[in-house]
Amino acid sequence: MKEWFGSAAVCINEKNEILMVKGYNSDMWAIPSGGIEEGETPEECCVREVLEETGYEVVIMDKLFIKKTTIKDIKVKTHYFKVKKVGESIGINDPDKIIEEVDWKLLSDIEKIKHAYPEDKEFLVNIIRNSVDTEKTLG
């Protein structure tokens, strides 16, 4: 069985919005993610993919979890990281030419948009809720 290894970035801004991307000919959103290239660490892949797909430079804050699944007979292992953006976007520079749109989504958006990976929806909703709760506690 073929294997695929990738990284995904959960980036929440100061308004508690989450960074999402949408591909061409699709109405489904996902967090920035992509395949790990030869010689690359999961962390390096995560930072590179966010830059390519959204134009944002990010730093890794935390390793969240590893999602293991099988898609069309391919064993998929994706490393999820919490990241923080540094500065503003320089624009999409996706070498794969698959990303059409980048947007910051509120909790209410996350609950109603179509997800490319529906299994991520609950986790994304929870991470935003936790971020909001943490702010209230710290505020």
Rank of each mutant, 00 (worst) to 15 (best):
D62N: 15
D62W: 08
D62I: 02
D62C: 09
D62L: 08
K63I: 07
K63E: 15
L64M: 15
F65R: 07
F65M: 11
F65N: 03
I66T: 15
I66Y: 06
K67G: 02
K67D: 13
K68L: 09
K68C: 12
K68Y: 11
K68G: 08
K68P: 04
T69M: 12
T69D: 14
T69K: 08
T70D: 04
T70F: 00
I71S: 05
I71F: 12
I71D: 10
K72L: 12
K72Q: 10
K72N: 13
K72T: 07
D73Y: 08
D73L: 05
I74N: 11
I74Q: 11
I74K: 09
I74M: 10
I74V: 15
K75F: 09
K75Y: 11
V76P: 01
V76E: 04
K77V: 07
K77G: 03
K77M: 12
T78L: 03
T78F: 02
T78S: 03
H79R: 00
H79V: 01
H79N: 14
H79W: 09
H79T: 03
Y80L: 04
F81M: 00
K82S: 12
K82R: 13
K82T: 03
V83G: 00
K84G: 02
K84A: 04
K84F: 04
K84C: 03
K84H: 02
K85T: 01
K85W: 00
K85C: 00
V86D: 07
V86W: 02
V86E: 12
V86Y: 05
G87E: 09
G87A: 05
G87V: 08
G87W: 10
G87L: 07
G87Y: 10
G87F: 10
G87Q: 10
E88L: 06
E88N: 10
E88M: 04
S89W: 01
S89L: 04
S89T: 10
S89C: 08
S89Y: 05
I90Q: 09
I90K: 11
I90R: 12
G91P: 02
I92R: 01
I92A: 09
I92V: 14
I92G: 03
I92Q: 02
N93I: 13
D94Q: 02
D94A: 05
D94M: 01
D94W: 00
D94Y: 02
D94P: 05
P95K: 05
P95Y: 12
P95E: 11
D96R: 12
D96K: 14
K97D: 14
K97V: 11
K97W: 07
K97E: 14
K97P: 03
I98V: 13
I98N: 01
I98D: 05
I98Q: 02
I99V: 15
I99D: 01
I99S: 02
I99Y: 03
E100S: 10
E100K: 11
E100M: 05
E100F: 02
E101G: 04
E101D: 15
E101V: 02
E101S: 12
E101R: 14
V102I: 06
V102D: 00
V102H: 00
V102S: 00
D103H: 10
D103F: 07
D103W: 06
D103T: 11
D103S: 13
D103L: 03
D103C: 06
D103P: 02
D103Q: 12
W104I: 07
W104V: 07
W104R: 06
W104S: 06
K105L: 15
K105A: 07
L106E: 14
L106N: 14
L106V: 07
L106T: 15
L106D: 11
